[in-house]
Structures are given as structure tokens and as C-alpha cells.
Simulated assay, not measured.
Amino acid sequence: MIEMTDVSKTYANGVNALNNIDVLIEKGEFVYIVGPSGAGKSTFIKMIYREEKPSDGRIMINGHDLTTLKEKHVPYLRRNIGVVFQDFKLLPKMTVFENVAFALEVIEEPRSEIKKRVMEVLDIVKLKNKARFFPDELSGGEQQRVSIARAIVNRPQVVIADEPTGNLDPDTSWEIMDVLEEINKRGTTILMATHNRSIVNTIKKRVIAIESGRIVRDELRGDYGYER
């Protein structure tokens, strides 16, 4: 489903973020991306939704070559990739419903379909009763659940979660993991960049460790492998 072949990334300032990455992620997998700060994790996941382009190598997603994908086709690629950020990125003047609906409005889904799908995903993240609330009326965990609902409302094949528990307390972090696991059980591929040692060591999934721009470990049901 996601395949990187000999992928490298060097930024304009000369920093080598990734070096000769080879990896295959199958449909329906749940994969943790771990490693020290500055190791290349963010670059790795940004290339999957074409926020960044590789300097060398090839990236394939569902048979589409991202390295030759024209810019005008990038929005269509992103309809199949949901992204969950550490800092939520919700629109403060929109309600929970409106924040999630916005992802469908930009692709001009019919209004009747928007309402149905938004309420479906709010039910999945257990926020149906807060559809009319604004972000500043929610806890951090609830805001992250809205972010997840927005990421999955297009029914993407892949969800990329970039440090989704980074700003949350431990109890709330486990709640977010319950939601991500539920989404994964429904068939969505999950890639989660994280520094949360406890979560990785408790909820066993595939672990890809990146250090100095290289994959140094790729283990099924792996451990975090770092002290912090």
C-alpha cells in the first residue's frame, strides 16, 4: 500500500533528513514511527501526504507514484490520507460539527451526505453530544478527538497521526489510543509518530525506528527502545 524505495531527502540548507529509506507498509497495518528528536520522523510522514518531496528514490501509495505526481493531483491524493496533528489545528470560530464538515465542504459533498457522515464520525469518537460546542469549550482530549473525526470523515485509507498524544495527559492519551485502535479495526491503515514510550510498549504494534535519517529497526510487536 505504501512503499518507499531508496528514498532520500536533503533540504536546501544541506541537512540530510532521510537516507536510502526502503519500507513497505501493508493495508490495515498500525505502525509506530519512533526515534530521537531530529531523526527524520516528521520528514518521513510528510512525504507520505506530499508535504515534502524526496530528493531521490520513489514513493508509491496504492499504485500511484508520488514522486511524479503533478501538483494539481495532490489534493485528490490527500482525500485518501487523513492527518492528525499534535496541536489539533481546529478552526476556533467553528463548532465541532462545522470543523469536521469543512473537510467535506471543500470537496463539495452534498449537504445531506455531509450531515450524515459528520454525525457518524462524531459517534465513533464519542462526541455526538458536543456537535454544537466550540473548540475552546472542549478539553484537550476532546479537541484531539475532533481532529481525528475530521481526519476520517473522508473515509481515508490511511491516517497519519503526528504525535497525537504529545499535548495530552496520560489518561487522555489512552482514550485517544482507544479511538485510533477502533479506526484501525475498521480497516484504516494508521501511521503514528510518537515519543510515548508507555503507549508503544503497552499497545504492541509494528515499530519502525528512525535514527539519523535511516531505518535502524523494523519490528512487528516491537518496543519503543529508548529511555525517553
Rank of each mutant, 00 (worst) to 15 (best):
D87S: 14
E219S: 11
N62L: 01
E142K: 01
S147P: 12
S42R: 09
V34Y: 09
V159A: 03
E137M: 15
V125A: 03
R197P: 05
A101F: 02
K185D: 13
V83K: 04
M1E: 09
N196L: 01
T10M: 08
D171V: 09
E181M: 13
R150Y: 10
F133Q: 13
R117K: 15
V200E: 12
F133T: 10
A17S: 14
I2M: 12
G35S: 12
R58M: 12
S147Y: 10
R217L: 12
D218V: 02
P156H: 10
P110D: 08
E26F: 07
E71F: 06
K89E: 13
L180E: 13
T43G: 01
Q86N: 02
N13L: 02
E52C: 04
R78I: 00
V96Y: 05
A131P: 04
I176L: 10
R221T: 03
N16V: 14
F97S: 11
G28T: 06
L127N: 02
L127R: 03
I190S: 08
R206S: 01
L127C: 00
F97N: 12
I2E: 04
N80L: 00
S55C: 09
K46V: 00
I48R: 00
S198R: 15
E105Y: 01
K205A: 05
L24S: 15
G140A: 04
A17K: 08
E71W: 03
R150Q: 04
M60G: 03
Y49R: 03
T67M: 05
R145K: 15
R79V: 06
I199E: 13
S37W: 07
M60T: 15
F102M: 13
Y76M: 01
F44C: 11
E181V: 07
D22A: 05
S8E: 03
A131M: 12
D6W: 00
I183H: 05
L168A: 06
K9I: 06
E211G: 05
A209M: 13
A101M: 02
N201D: 15
E113F: 03
A161R: 12
K27G: 04
D178N: 15
E211F: 04
T43F: 01
L90N: 10
E26N: 15
I61K: 02
I107E: 12
E26V: 06
S139F: 05
E113V: 14
